[in-house]
């Protein structure tokens, strides 16, 4: 088990390194381009060369990379072109805001989708199962931006009971969090529900469930003691990987509702070619994604005695 965790950590570090190299190459191999992005299109040739020289851009590529990586490791990604402050000053508060959004979403998604998935999977083919399944297909078919528009049309335009933007200019407000969370939940819960349902339905057809029933255990005990434990191993992984998906979702939702979070920041940085901010955002996103993936793998192994005691 320990060996496994160490090995997964190794893979994670390796992945991060490869990603950072790719990212560095894509964004910084063209030195001239970097200068244009930082100093703006109207800067003179002279200005650019001066800036490049001062920042060590005429050094060999691998030296630049190592220096860049070293700085990145201690949290120094350089200055944001647009905000004119060190990247970390912009990044961390934004990340915190997105954390709140993601946490709120997960707190709704996990109980909702596990509950519905188990209910549907318990009796495969029943009316309840069919309606839960179809509902989850329908909600995953509506892209986040579409549900944002449709939900806003209802709650903001028609009913007028909720605010259409979540910029939180007057401090944190729960009310402003409702619509973004609703949109994210709507798109995400369907997938987890279907995975849970599939896992539960599969477990219900296994021979060991038959053994448990024919052992004379009460139905509730069969479900709780025998089915759930095995059926929830797969959804655990799915939920952990859902955090990765959520990082995509927040870009759309934060953009739509003008929520000051990480996703909006990344988009803004990309649209403005704010190069160092893009790098920082990308590294953070990949770190979160790879990290959750590792937790998912390790957790899966831990939950599964067949692997744990192999």
């Amino acid at each position: 088990m320990l060996v496994f965790v160490v090995r997964r950590l190794g893979t994670m570090v390796l992945t991060m390194v490869v990603v950072s190299i790719l990212l560095f190459l894509v964004l910084e191999i063209n030195v001239e381009g970097v200068a244009v992005k930082v100093l703006g299109p109207y800067s003179s040739e002279e200005q650019r060369n001066l800036w490049l020289d001062r920042n060590g851009y005429f050094d060999p590529l691998h030296e630049r990379y190592v220096r860049w990586l070293g700085n990145a490791l201690v949290g120094d990604f350089g200055d944001s072109v647009r905000f004119r402050v060190p990247v970390s000053q912009v990044l961390w508060p934004r990340l915190g805001n997105t954390g709140i959004l993601a946490l709120a979403t997960m707190m709704v998604v996990i109980p909702l989708s596990l509950g519905l998935g188990v209910l549907a999977g318990m009796r495969e083919g029943s009316k309840l199962d069919r309606s839960i399944s179809i509902t989850s297909i329908v909600t995953t078919s509506v892209p986040e931006f579409a549900s944002a528009v449709l939900i806003s049309a209802v709650f903001v335009f028609w009913l007028g009971i909720l605010p259409g933007t979540s910029s939180m200019t007057d401090g944190f407000s729960i009310v402003q969090l409702i619509l973004p969370v609703m949109v994210l939940v709507l798109y995400d819960f369907g997938y987890v529900t279907r995975m849970t349902r599939a896992s539960m339905a599969e477990v219900m057809t296994t021979h060991y469930i038959r053994t448990a029933v024919l052992k004379g255990l009460p139905y509730k005990t069969v479900i709780v003691r025998h089915a759930l434990r095995n059926a929830l191993i797969a959804p655990f992984t799915v939920i952990m990987l859902q955090i990765n998906w959520l990082l995509s979702g927040v870009i759309v939702v934060e953009f739509f509702f003008a929520y000051k979070g990480f996703g909006a920041l990344l988009l803004e940085a990309s649209l403005n070619q704010d190069i160092f901010l893009i790098e920082a955002c990308a590294m953070v996103a990949v770190f979160v994604a790879v990290g959750t993936q590792m937790l998912a793998d390790v957790g899966y192994t831990y939950l599964n005695p067949r692997i744990r005691f192999a």
Partner: peptide, 28 residues
């Protein structure tokens, strides 16, 4: 009824199956 049949199963009438590995709960 369901409850009465449950009390028979595994108690008065019990069963042994073809695939022992599949018949046992892997995580218990």
């Amino acid at each position: 009824g369901e409850e009465e049949i449950r009390q028979l199963r595994g108690n008065e009438i019990s069963m042994v199956y073809q695939e022992p590995m599949a018949s046992l709960n892997p995580s218990m």
